[in-house]
Design a protein around this nucleic acid. Sequence first.
DNA 1: TGACCCTTGTGAAGGCAGGAACAAAGTGGA
DNA 2: TCCACTTTGTTCCTGCCTTCACAAGGGTCA
Lengths: 218, 218
Amino acid sequence: MSKGIPIATIARLPVYLHGLRLLTDRGVSVVSSEELANLTAVRSTKLRKDLSYLGSYGVRGVGYDVSYLTHQISRAMGLTQNWAVVLIGIGNLGQALAGYGGFSSRGFQIKALLDADPKKIGSIVGGQSVLHIDQLERVFSENANSIAVLAVPESAAQGICDRVVGAGVTSILNFAPMVLQVPSSVELRKVDLSIELQILAFYEQRKLANSSALLNSV
Amino acid sequence: MSKGIPIATIARLPVYLHGLRLLTDRGVSVVSSEELANLTAVRSTKLRKDLSYLGSYGVRGVGYDVSYLTHQISRAMGLTQNWAVVLIGIGNLGQALAGYGGFSSRGFQIKALLDADPKKIGSIVGGQSVLHIDQLERVFSENANSIAVLAVPESAAQGICDRVVGAGVTSILNFAPMVLQVPSSVELRKVDLSIELQILAFYEQRKLANSSALLNSV
DNA sequence: TGACCCTTGTGAAGGCAGGAACAAAGTGGA
DNA sequence: TCCACTTTGTTCCTGCCTTCACAAGGGTCA
């Protein structure tokens, strides 16, 4: 039952897919959970439990068939179909996202690029022409079930978000470093580029504090 | 005890800081957990619990002093000091990171930009001149305790990572969509730009599956 | 065919995070 | 000074995720 797959597992499946792709490139056709776990920096027991949510696709005493497992993970994640993505905000981050290999290789197809800056309209980014933000409603009506990706400045984010919701979009990914308000029927997720950096700083601070505490105690 | 702060809390503290900054801009000097929670899309009970890990900085019956709480959160996260960051890889993503306001506003100071592409050396990005990757060891020896941010292509990532570790860096943030191998003494964190998108796709797929199941059952 | 070996898949336990409910404490008014 | 009100800080409980340990199952070789 796909319904029972924990979110934590979903977040790791792409990492396994990446490891499997490496193995395919090397011509490896069968892999044990231990080997794949080493490649993806998780415990083998966690890997096996994750895979067990999808079904029993391994062979005891042998391991997993690389291509078969690749297919099963892709299917479970809904990546065998192509997902339409509309990218809004073509600044530096937007351009990076437009050219990001991790999207297309995982089944996400960017259907349109939108921006408000007249200087950018018509320019080619990642092989596509940038459209004016006025086209927003038309673009979403022509691409049903699209996911909206917001890479706009903080000041514009909530306004654009409201228009996207008004256009019937139910899945939004927000890169602006702020909290957006959406109806509960809309699935909103956020990527904050500096959160992980802050967690690192926190660890580093603790490390420094511990070493100075040691000095004091001598 | 800063040692007891859960990671989940650490990840939310920056969001609270952002909400507090909004309040400061509006001239608000005191805020209740309920109001701040609404601003940051969490439950007020979760907010209070998070803050209680830092200490007792509120006044019962009144709320929290905005500037005092701002200071205490910053201090707990180690953001009152400036953290030196060296950014490696000045492609689209690197340029986006170099200009990203969320870094400087949270106490991260980019000390150097490095790239291997001769065409980029000497160009000005985010107010700084791009240095050649050969300067890597020198840059880190001049900036002790720096955090390395990797925004390089997948094929170059492990090699650069090894050099960074060799230069004595103990905190690395990786934006390349791959798993890096580091000694256990090094703190490595990763940002995968497409993981959240995949989680959205998974929800969307489940939504579609459920609605078609409903149709079939009629 | 049977015994041994290897690896998967799963049940159970432990730990961490989230939510609810309540006790504690400070303010303001009478 | 006392009482009622407001909001914090904390305890308890529930649920999810991770880890451990082992049973189950398939392959291989004699």
